[in-house]
Amino acid sequence: MCDIDSGFDNSVALSTAPDSKPGAARLRIVAWLLACVLPLLVSPALADDGRGATADLPRVQVAEPYVAWHTGPAAAYPVVRVSEKGEWLTLVRRKTDWFRVRDRRGREGWVHVDDVLLTLDGAGEPVTLTEPRFDDFSTRRWEAGLMMGEFDRAPVTAVYAGYWMTANLSLELWGSQALGTASEILMVSGNLVHQPFPDWRVSPFFTLGYGHIAIRPKTTLADTENRDNPMANAGLGVRFYMTDRYFLRAEVKDYKTFTDRQTNEEATEWKLGLSIFF
């Protein structure tokens, strides 16, 4: 009861704060749109009985002594059938590293991409698929990622997308949100990234950026003035290729906010995240 009493005083002040929730309405619209679109997506999904038009789908011939079929798209699913050398398989669809295949009798199962790469195509040549490899790490143009860390001791979540103009130079667009005990901070920025050694598996980089920072103090605090200011940042970090199209990214950035008061503000941020290249 004691807790509630003290909370009452606190929240009277709170409820007098102006209502500002334009974001909530927008997000709600997104959810409703999704609710409307989903049934449209579901109907073809339901109609899909796995026996669509076979004519156009690629076919491959087993070249190894045998190929194992699993009941599902994971190594843990049991092997239920094998295809012998010379058999033709139709590649119906793909989920991560697994292909749903169909044989001449219409039976279906899942075969791993490593096995598909050992088959032959219609021309008798080994099947080639564009599997992302380490070589692509330095040559692919687009990347996107999700990172988390701390901005001035407040937890920060950030997303970015980048385009490599050359092997060394990339342009990135960032959006970040830091939720501290005293304020909510939203940031957008454009960054130029330079990596001197694009061929290294662990590739260091430097970055410079310019953007905008919006600080919204918590409603429970006396000073509820919102502050929007331009901001610049400089940082360094590493990109670490893992496997497939994935790499880890870690970075530290120093931010300078240009305010109209006597002093500019500075903050340090570190983040760790997972990125994908396309």
Binding site: A31, L34, A35, L38, L41, D56, L57, P58, R59, V60, Q61, W88, L91, V92, R93, R94, K95, T96, F99, R104, D121, G122, A123, G124, E125, V127, T128, L129, T130
Partner: peptide, 23 residues
């Protein structure tokens, strides 16, 4: 021998299903 035309595997024809959207 089954009737197979000499065609290479065109990856674009294979439907990849790695994304999920739901409510």
């Amino acid at each position: 021998e089954p009737d197979v035309r000499p065609v290479a595997v065109d990856e674009a024809l294979i439907d990849t299903e790695n994304f999920e959207v739901g409510a």
